[in-house]
Design a protein around this nucleic acid. Structure first.
Lengths: 339, 339
DNA sequence: CTGTTAGCGCATTCAC
DNA sequence: GTGAATGCGCTAACAG
C-alpha cells in the first residue's frame, strides 16, 4: 500500500527531526556527526515507513542516477546474454540498475548513446560491439559519460575482453593430446579482434609441438550456422587427406560444421573430432554434445561493471588483463583420431 | 561537447521568452496556444542548443519516467530473448526505455519489484514468469504500478500470451498430413498454462481425424535438453510399436530428443519425424534442422508493451486474444512415415 | 498568448 | 549535533 509514499519529510516528522538530519544519517556520509540516539530513532522511523529513496530526486540533485546503460548487438548470442547476466548481477549488488539496448553499436549508435545518457541520464555505458568501428569510440566519448568496451579492445579505451588466443591454444592442445596432428580451424572473422587472436593461438599451439602451419587448414566461417556449414564443406572438399580434428571459433559455427559432417556421412568423433570455443547451453543441445573451451563470459560482464563503476567514481583504473579460459568441458565430440 | 548542457532556461534565454513557454511548445500539449512566431523561435533555439529534456527532472515533476521494467526468469531462453527484442523495439519507438532484470519472478520477486518501481520509479512492469505462482499477482499489485504478464495468463490480470493449443494443433496436423498416425507428444509441464494447452491442441488434432487418444503417447519432458532426452528414451522403451512422429513442446526438448534418437540409431526423419513448437535459432543448429511451428514471440513482447502503455495512460484495455502461431517452418526433421 | 509562482524529493551549504 | 534555506530542471496551475 504505502509504497512510493514515504519520503524524507515523512521520516523526519516521525522521528521528530529535520529532513536534512535524516538525509545525513541515511547517506552515512563520512563526515557524519549525529548522536547515536537520534540516528537510531531515524533508522527506526525509516524502517517502519519502509522508506525508499527516490532515485529521480536524488539523481536530479547529484546527477548520479545509479543506472548503467548496456548496449549489445544481439540478445540471443550466448556470449552476450551471459555477459549481461554477469553485469546485471554485480550491478544490482552495487545498487545500480541496468538499462539495456540491443542496437547495433556501429549503426544508429550515436543517437542511441545520447538517448541513454542525455535523456535518461545513465551514469555510464557498457558497450559490446561486433566490429572494430573506430567511429564508435568517438561517439562514445561525445556522450561525456564513462564507458567500457566488452568483448574487444579498441585502442587503449577501457575494455574487458577474453583471452581468445589462450582459449584457442587450450582447445588445440586438447586435440594434440588426444593424438591429432592434422587439425583444421574454422575461424571467425579474420580481421576481428577475437578472430585474429584465435588464429594466433591455434598456430602457437601447433608450433609448440613443432607442427607445420598449413594455411589451407584455416577457413573463415564467420559466426553463423550457415557459415559453419559452408566452411566445413569447403574444408572437406579441399583437404585430402581430410583433417582428423577441428577447432571451431564458436559453438554456433561448430553446430553448422556438425551438419556438414553428418551430411558427409562422417562419424563424430570416430572420423573427426571437434572442439569449440565458448561454452553455452547449445553445446549440450547438438549431437553429439560439443567439447568446449569454457570462457568466462559472465565474468566479462561482471568485470566490466566493476571497471565502469570505478571510472564513474573518478578513479583511473587500468583495464584488466585479457580473461583466460576457465576450463575445458569434455563432452562427446572429441576422441583419439581414427586408425 | 555541450551534451546534457542545454536546459529549458538556456533555450528560453536564447529565444527571449520564459521557460514555461518553452515547456509548453516543446511538450505540445493539446491546449497549446502559442503564436506561430514565438513557437518557431523556440524550436529553432532548442535545435541550435541541441536541447534534450532531462528525464529525471521531468520524472520528478510528473512521476512519469518513461521507463518500463521487464523481468524475465532467463535471458538465454529463445522465447524470452525474442520477446524482449519485440518489447524493446516498440518501447523505444514510443519513447520508453526498458530496464531489465532477470530474476526469477517467483522468488525474491517482491524486493525486485520494489527496487524497480519504488527506487527507480519505472512506470510499469512487464513480467514473464515460468510458473503459476499466485503470490506473484499480489506482489505485483502491491507495487502500485500497472503491469502486464507475458507468456501466460493468471486469473484475469492483464496478459499477453501465445495460443499454445493452436500451435500444437498445427504441428500435429502437419504430421497427420504427412501420413503419420502414431504420434507421441513430448510435453512441457503438464500443470503449466502452456503445457496444458499444448496437450489439448495435440488431442484436438488427433480427435479431429477420429484417432484414439492414448495417454501412453504423452510424456512430460519439461523444458530442458536433459528432460527431452530422458522423456524420449522413456517413450522409446515403453512404446511398441514405436511412434512414427513426435510433437515436442519446445525446440530445446526437441534437441534433447534428437540426442536420444541418434543414440538409439534411429534415422530422422526416415524412421521418426519430429516437429517442435516455437522457432528459434537453435532449430537450425541441430541435426537434422528442426521443422517448427513458428510462434509470434517477438510480437508477444511488442503487444505487451502496447498494452502496458495504455494501462499507464489510464485506459482500461482488455488483454488481447491469445496469439496464434504465425506459420510452419519446414526443415529436415519431418517426412512421411516409414513403410 | 505568455509570464509568475510553486513545488516534485532530495543533498548540501551555512547558521546556530 | 541539528535545523533552515537553496536549487537541481521541469511542469502545471494561475495570473495577467
Amino acid at each position: 500500500m504505502n509504497l512510493q509514499r514515504a519520503n524524507l519529510k515523512d521520516v523526519a516528522r516521525l522521528a521528530g527531526v529535520d529532513v536534512s538530519t535524516v538525509s545525513r544519517v541515511l547517506n552515512g556520509s563520512s563526515t557524519q556527526r549525529v548522536s547515536e540516539e537520534t540516528r537510531a530513532r531515524i533508522l527506526a522511523a525509516a524502517e517502519t515507513l519502509e522508506y525508499r529513496p527516490n532515485a529521480l530526486a536524488r539523481g536530479l540533485r547529484t546527477s548520479r542516477v545509479f543506472a548503467l546503460g548496456i548496449v549489445v548487438p544481439q540478445l540471443d548470442n550466448p556470449v552476450f546474454s551471459s555477459a549481461i547476466r554477469g553485469a546485471e548481477l554485480v550491478a544490482s549488488a552495487l545498487g545500480y540498475s541496468l538499462i539495456i539496448s540491443h542496437r547495433d553499436p556501429g549503426r544508429a549508435a550515436e543517437g542511441e548513446y545520447k538517448r541513454l545518457t542525455v535523456t535518461h541520464g545513465v551514469d555510464g555505458l557498457l558497450v559490446a560491439s561486433l566490429d572494430e568501428d573506430r567511429g564508435l569510440i568517438g561517439a562514445l566519448e561525445e556522450t561525456g559519460v564513462p564507458f567500457v568496451l566488452m568483448n574487444r579492445r579498441i585502442g587503449d579505451a577501457p575494455a574487458v575482453a577474453l583471452d581468445s588466443q589462450e582459449a584457442a591454444r587450450v582447445g588445440v592442445e586438447h586435440l594434440l593430446d588426444l593424438g591429432h596432428r592434422r587439425i583444421a580451424h574454422l575461424a571467425g572473422r579474420l580481421e576481428g579482434f577475437n578472430g585474429r587472436a584465435r588464429v594466433a593461438g591455434y598456430q602457437a599451439a601447433l608450433a609448440a609441438r613443432g607442427l607445420p602451419l598449413d594455411p589451407d587448414l584455416v577457413e573463415s566461417a564467420g559466426y553463423t550456422v550457415e557459415g559453419g556449414t559452408r566452411a566445413m564443406q569447403a574444408l572437406l572438399a579441399r583437404l585430402h587427406p581430410r583433417p582428423t580434428a577441428i577447432l571451431a571459433a564458436t559453438v554456433v559455427s561448430a553446430a553448422g560444421a556438425l551438419t556438414a559432417l553428418h551430411e558427409a556421412g562422417l562419424g563424430i568423433p570416430s572420423d573427426i573430432s571437434i572442439v569449440a570455443i565458448h561454452d553455452a547451453p547449445i553445446a549440450a543441445m547438438v549431437y553429439p554434445a560439443l567439447t568446449t573451451v569454457q570462457t568466462p563470459t559472465e565474468s566479462m560482464g561482471a568485470r566490466a561493471v566493476e571497471l565502469l563503476i570505478r571510472l564513474i567514481a573518478g578513479e583511473k583504473p587500468a583495464s584488466p588483463p585479457l580473461l583466460p579460459p576457465s576450463g575445458l568441458i569434455l563432452r562427446r565430440s572429441t576422441a583419439a583420431p581414427p586408425g
